[in-house]
């Protein structure tokens, strides 16, 4: 860990209750997951990093972490909500275009790359048009780091409900893409 990280570790260890989880260790353990969760919603690296920082600020402002039974779903829920709030205040179309361009292979020709970008943008647009619960389940499942039970805790839903939502989201997305994205 870097010097600043060690300093933070000492600071938190001195000022916080000893039995509480250390925020510095929480950062090193969960920041990657939180970044991917935020990125799945925002599709922008800088914005996702800001969300991760805001998430840990919320953690620090929390009076005690002893009440938090399961840290991972709790942190993911904070990051998810912050990302959704931030997405409303930004221009997601531009971010989606940049993200789609970054996914296109560099070896293909310009025309083929343009077609690929357009098709991926359509997928992203249709994902945004999904019902909120289905969209959130689809994005959380894309991260592939959370179990179905954990996703249920993040979204306050049962495991079976999460599975059903994920199935419906994939089915609906595929149908809409095949129909040309006109159906809702």
């Amino acid at each position: 860990m870097t010097a600043i990280g060690e300093q933070s570790l000492r600071w938190f260890a001195a000022d916080r209750v000893k039995a509480e989880p250390d925020v510095a260790s929480l950062v090193s353990e969960h920041s990657g997951l939180l970044y991917r969760v935020a990125f799945s919603v925002l599709r922008n690296a800088a914005e996702a990093e800001d969300v991760v920082q805001d998430t840990f600020l919320r953690v620090v402002q929390q009076k005690t972490l002893l009440d938090v039974l399961e840290m991972r779903p709790w942190l993911v829920r904070i990051a998810m909500n912050l990302s959704l709030d931030r997405r409303r205040s930004t221009r997601p179309d531009q971010m989606d275009a940049l993200f789609a361009e970054s996914l296109v292979a560099r070896e293909v020709s310009a025309d083929a790359a343009l077609v690929e970008v357009q098709s991926m943008l359509r997928v992203l647009q249709e994902m945004e048009r999904l019902p909120k619960a289905e969209r959130q389940v689809l994005l959380l499942s894309a991260v592939e780091e959370l179990t179905t039970v954990e996703m249920g805790k993040v979204l306050s839903k049962s495991e079976s409900a999460v599975r059903a939502l994920l199935f419906r989201a994939r089915t609906r997305l595929r149908e809409r893409l095949e129909k040309g994205g006109s159906a809702r």
């Binding site: 600071w11 991917r36 620090v60 595929r174």
Partner: peptide
């Protein structure tokens, strides 16, 4: 269509945190 969906989901899954993010976060927290 499936291919585009899979590429999108894979892109979201494989997103890597920027270098030095943890350090910046800890500094910002301090």
């Amino acid at each position: 269509t499936d291919d585009a969906m899979e590429r999108i989901l894979r892109g979201l899954r494989e997103a890597e945190a920027p270098e030095g993010m943890e350090r910046r976060i800890l500094k910002g927290l301090e």
